[in-house]
Structure formats: C-alpha cells, structure tokens
Amino acid sequence: MSKLAPATITRWVVSGPPTLFMLLFFLAPSLIMVLASFRYPGAFGGLAPVFGGGRPGEDTGLTLENYQFFFSDLLYTEIFLKSLLIALISTLACILMAYPLALLIARSPKRHRDLMVLLVILPFASNFLIRVYALMILLGPQQALASTINGVLAAFGCAPVSLLFSTFAVVVGMVYVHLPFMVLPLYTNLEKHDPTLLDAAQDLGASAWSRFWRVTFPLSLPGIFSGSALVFIPVLGMFAIPDLLGGTRDILIGNLIKDQFLGTRDWPFGSMLSIMLTVVVLALAGLAARLGQRKRDGGN
C-alpha cells in the first residue's frame, strides 16, 4: 500500500465535504432526471415503473417517445426560440444599462465605491416575488406610467396599449431582476483596469471615444462575458416573471417545464424539456468559448 502524503490528505479533507454535497444533491438528481426523460409517466403523476407491471393503463419500461414528441410538434421549438430571443434581448438590455453604471462606480473615488455596490445589490434584501408584484402595480393599466403613455398615444390617434401582461413587461421584469448580476462582474473587471493605460492612449493621440472603444471596452470583454452568462442562463429558465407579468402568449421554456411537473404532472416530458434546455445552454456556452478562442488565436 502506498503511503499518502499529508498534503494529499489535507486536500481531500478540505475538498471532500463540498464534493460529496455536489455529488449527492447536484449530480444524482441530474442523473435521475436523465433517466426519467426516458420513462413513461405514472397514471397519477410521477413515473411508471421500468420493470414489472404498472397500474392499468400505464406503459412501463424505457422509451424515446418524449424526445420524439418534442420534435414532432414545432410548438416546442418555437417556445425554445422565443425564450432564447427574450433571454438575448434581456441580456443586451442588461449590458446597455449595467455598463455605464459599472463604469461610474469603478471611476468613483474609492471611498464611495463600496456604498454604490451595496446599493446595486440592495434589492436582494427584499423578496423576489414581492418586487415582481411591485412591478405589476407599477405597470398596471390604472397607473401613471400606463396612463401617460396611452394619453400620448391617444393624442396621435393610436389605440391604447397594455404595459402589463406583455412581452415588454416580461423583459422589464427580467432586466430588473438580473441587472445586479451584470453590474457586479463588470464592475469587478473595470475596477482592475490600470488608469495609466488611458493616460497612455490619450498621450498617443486617442480621443475620449477612441480611448473607450480601443482600450476600456476590449479589456472589459471578460466581464461582459461572465455577466452575460449570469443573466442569460437564469433568464432562459425563469418561470415566475412570465407567469406574473406576461400575457397568455408569453409562455417560455421555464413555464413549460414548470407546468409539466406541477400542472400536467408529466414528469418524463418535463425532464426531457429540462435536458433539452441544458443541452442548448451547453451548446451556446461551447460556441461562445470557441469564438473567444478563435479571436485570441486570430490576434497572434
């Protein structure tokens, strides 16, 4: 038997508990879900047994039916595409709003920065659902915002619009909830920039515009990428916001999956959707990594 070095033992003692936790509560459920996506639903929800007889009317064993059904109806692909589009729009809107904010914080005097960061994450101190309900009130048809907009529209002879229960409201909600996840990584990145680089750029003839696009922006790309991942992926799976703020047509993947488990009680189909979502996200992440790599190689 080979002797274990003390360093090796320490490493395992320290990393053991979190590894065990992740194996038990992340890897195991994921594998259960993969398995579930190949099974039949039970007659009263849940899963039908793989081996042996089920209840009357239940199919048993393993099947590809769930996957076949997904591709047989374009409706699901459409919901996937719409979810991707909303996630994309929300992410871009987050970048546009978070960038100036993060830059402002990063260029503020050091003693003010902590307070400003605290203000950015302050919404986390109140319950997420309550904040979404607050948005419902704000966007409601009787409120000042909607009245003003519809008043202006009426002046131009246009029909009134509903702010609430629309794709617009869904995007507003998504951006509002996820904005801090974009601000924080961007700020962390921008704060580390060496201010001498901007002096050097200016010294070498760069205008304020060039200094931003040729120095600050390219150096902040890693921050934009991590912020985008932190916004895009949760938005893609989010169901509460489309549920509360969206209209009947604003069903996203998240709602679809939730309905399979809580409404229709078709666990295998829900598991399949969930796995498809994971596959799409991983494929996009892989693509982004590949593009980033190529850009770096192209530079050489």
Partner: peptide
C-alpha cells in the same frame, strides 16, 4: 492627445490586449 509629445511611462503602459505590432501601430492609427 493633440500635443506632438509622447510619453514612455514608468510602467510602460503597454495595451495588454494588443500585440507588440498593434501597440506600436496605435499612435499611427490615431
């Protein structure tokens, strides 16, 4: 940026995302 005067900084202040050739090309691009 409008003075025909350039500086070599103590920390060199090379642009980390640009290659050597791109760094040298910077003032010409500007």
């Amino acid at each position: 940026e409008q003075r025909p005067i350039h500086t070599v900084f103590q920390s060199y202040a090379l642009f980390p995302h640009l290659t050597v050739a791109e760094n040298v090309a910077f003032p010409l691009r500007m």
